[in-house]
Amino acid sequence: MDIDLTGRRALVTGSTGGIGYAIAKALAALGATVAINGRTQERVRDAITKLKGETSTGAFIAAPGDVAHAAGAERVRTGLPDVDILVNNAGIFEPKPFFEIPDEDWQRFFETNVMSGVRLSRIYTPGMVERGWGRVVFISSESGLNIPVEMVHYGMTKTAQLAVSRGLAETVSGTGVTVNSVLPGPTLSEGVAEFMTKMAAQSGETDLDAMGRAFVAEHRPTSLIGRLATVSEVANMVAYICSPAASATSGAALRVDGGVVRSIA
């Protein structure tokens, strides 16, 4: 199976931690040169230092810029004119009751979770088409299919990503460029770990695995694995669909949700 990415250049947005960091590490392990993105130069520098200490293959370059804004996306483009692989991972989440979500939050979530990927896809995909090879991946969520009542605005953005991903795949059909979405389920990212730690202060529980299993049992009871996924498990799927081996997979919504979504298709 051809999963070699030697000579390919990848950009993973929001890759200074969490799922994005794990994806960057996985792509580097396959030989890609990976551009690490975060809002500040300092966070990007620290992430690259950590990645270099954890990996023996691949290379990393800095691509700082707040991609939630057009100026930030332009900053990234200026320092990184072309890529072969674009992983639109940058995103935010926040539990909040529907009737307490103001207009500003809806707009902030849409700009960060949706427009960041739209802008960067518009910047980088044409070059992939010209070269006849490329990979674009949107990190959506099972919440795009099962809208979570505790954060409807987040779920809305994840559904929108599915629409953008499929539409872009249709746009570049037959060019050698594939576009797909990956839908993680509940995942033990740094943000989720922080969220659960705050919850633990009330319950007294300190075991993250136990807290994760309790969360899944209460809030995602349809999960077939009964636990939180790891960031590496999500990254493995992304690394595969970015590889030459996945050349016949495009326009797909690929779930790494532990079976939370109760449908066959």
Rank of each mutant, 00 (worst) to 15 (best):
T125D: 01
S165T: 12
I139R: 04
K158S: 00
G134L: 02
S140M: 06
G155S: 15
Y124S: 10
Q107P: 01
G185V: 02
A163T: 13
Q107D: 13
A160W: 09
A169P: 12
S116T: 10
R131P: 08
I147C: 03
I147R: 04
I139A: 06
L145Q: 00
E190C: 05
M115G: 03
W133E: 06
T159D: 12
A163N: 09
D103I: 10
R119S: 05
S173G: 10
R131K: 15
P126M: 02
N180P: 07
E100Y: 09
N113I: 12
V172L: 15
V129S: 15
T187K: 07
G127T: 02
I101C: 09
F109C: 02
T171Q: 08
G155R: 13
L188I: 00
G174I: 14
D103V: 11
Q107G: 04
M115S: 08
P102G: 01
V182Y: 01
V164A: 11
A163E: 03
V149N: 05
T159K: 09
P126S: 01
N113H: 10
V136H: 06
E100P: 14
T112I: 09
L183K: 04
V177D: 05
S141F: 02
E170W: 11
P148N: 03
G117S: 01
V118Q: 02
M151R: 15
D105H: 00
W106L: 00
R131T: 13
N180R: 09
I123G: 06
G191K: 11
F110N: 06
V129C: 15
V177W: 03
E190M: 08
R122Q: 14
Q161L: 13
T112L: 01
M156E: 04
T175H: 13
V164Q: 05
E104H: 00
T187M: 11
V164K: 03
V182Q: 02
D103A: 11
S165K: 03
L183V: 03
R119Y: 00
E142T: 05
V179F: 11
R135M: 07
V152I: 13
M156Y: 07
F110M: 11
R135T: 06
P186F: 14
A169Y: 12
G174Q: 09
D105Q: 10
M151L: 11
S181C: 13
G117P: 00
F99S: 08
V114M: 04
E104P: 03
F138Q: 11
L168D: 07
A169C: 13
P186C: 10
S140N: 07
G176R: 01
P186E: 11
L162C: 12
L168C: 15
G144Y: 04
F99D: 12
G174F: 11
E104N: 04
G185L: 02
V114P: 08
T175S: 15
E142V: 02
P148F: 01
R135S: 12
V129E: 15
